[in-house]
């Protein structure tokens, strides 16, 4: 007979499991102040979809962990959202790409100082059929003007991410007032880079992407790079510690250790070494203090 004992046993086991999960998770929080034994030390980094989806962190974090014993927990969000996460104190370090927004973050006292880390560039992706006829152009403003004139479908991230902010700046550079001219051809999806590429592939639309995500993207279908190489497509990444004065639980020492390593020659070399199909994705430039 299936007895009460069996059911009780199962329930108890489940509850114990839950309790174990709870106990396990409260431990790091409880030990944030005290030096923790190796393996339980960790920091939380709010970063962008491009660094995660491109696989850069998978490459960097084991190297950092081997050197310092610190685990890095990466939350992948758009730049705007990642900065919000830092503002609320839910991360120790913010690693994003939207210089103006980063500088405001620092100026408002949420963290800093900002350190430049690396750059890659944006590329304009579109269907090989290229209805706006922009393939091979090196002038991003002219390309966007052509897309808008022909009302060719364009997918926008629409999520306040670094890429979204860069896209908006490019429309401005092309002197196109989106608010006045946008129609059904301009499609905001409010999602990450990968989702935007999937959507563009499905709708034969143009889309602005960072090169790293594009290179590691697997579902390209009929899409290809149509415009690249314009200086205005430059995409700078910066890193900063969340202000420990404002959020006392922020792991200042370990967070700073991560930042220091990223901008050190060793970290910079690791970034430069990351390649997909022989192609370098990010160009380390921490020494360029103006970036």
């Amino acid at each position: 007979m299936l007895t009460k004992r069996h059911l009780l046993g199962a329930t108890t086991a489940l509850l114990a499991l839950g309790a174990a999960a709870l106990a396990q998770d409260t431990r790091p929080a409880a030990t944030t102040a005290a030096p923790a034994p190796a393996g339980t030390r960790f920091i939380t980094v709010a970063s962008t979809t491009s660094t995660v989806d491109s696989g850069l962190f998978n490459h960097l974090l084991p190297l950092f962990k081997a050197k310092t014993g610190i685990d890095v927990r990466v939350i992948s969000q758009g730049t705007g959202q990642a900065l919000d996460t830092g503002r609320r104190g839910d991360a120790d370090v913010v690693f994003v790409h939207a210089r103006a927004a980063e500088e405001k973050f620092v100026a408002d006292g949420h963290g800093g100082p900002r350190r430049p880390v690396m750059y890659n560039d944006f590329v304009l992706i579109g269907p090989k059929s290229d209805p706006a006829g922009i393939k091979g152009s090196r002038d991003i403003a002219a390309a966007l003007t052509a897309i808008q004139t022909k009302a060719a479908p364009f997918v926008s991230r629409g999520d306040r991410s670094g890429t979204h902010q860069a896209e908006l700046a490019l429309w401005q550079a092309a002197r196109i007032d989106l608010a006045a001219t946008r129609g059904t051809w301009y499609r905001e999806i409010g999602q990450g880079m990968g989702a935007a590429l999937n959507t563009a592939g499905g709708m034969n639309a143009y889309v602005l992407s960072d090169r790293a995500t594009w290179l590691s993207f697997r579902n390209r279908g009929d899409l290809d790079i149509l415009v690249e190489g314009d200086r205005r497509l430059f995409n700078q990444y910066g890193i900063m510690l969340v202000n420990p004065q404002r959020h006392p639980h922020v792991k200042q020492a370990d967070g700073q250790a991560f930042i220091d390593w990223i901008v050190s020659p060793e970290g910079q070399k690791a970034i430069a070494d990351y390649k997909i199909n022989g192609q370098q994705l990010f160009f380390a430039n921490a020494s360029d203090t103006g970036a």
């Binding site: 709870l22 998770d25 409260t26 929080a29 944030t32 939380t44 639980h249």
Partner: peptide, 20 residues
């Protein structure tokens, strides 16, 4: 659970406990 929320001091955001 956010650090800026009522239960923020527990530091449970972005943990399996929060998911449970």
């Amino acid at each position: 659970l956010s650090r800026s929320g009522p239960l923020g001091p527990l530091g449970l955001l972005f943990t399996p406990t929060a998911m449970v």
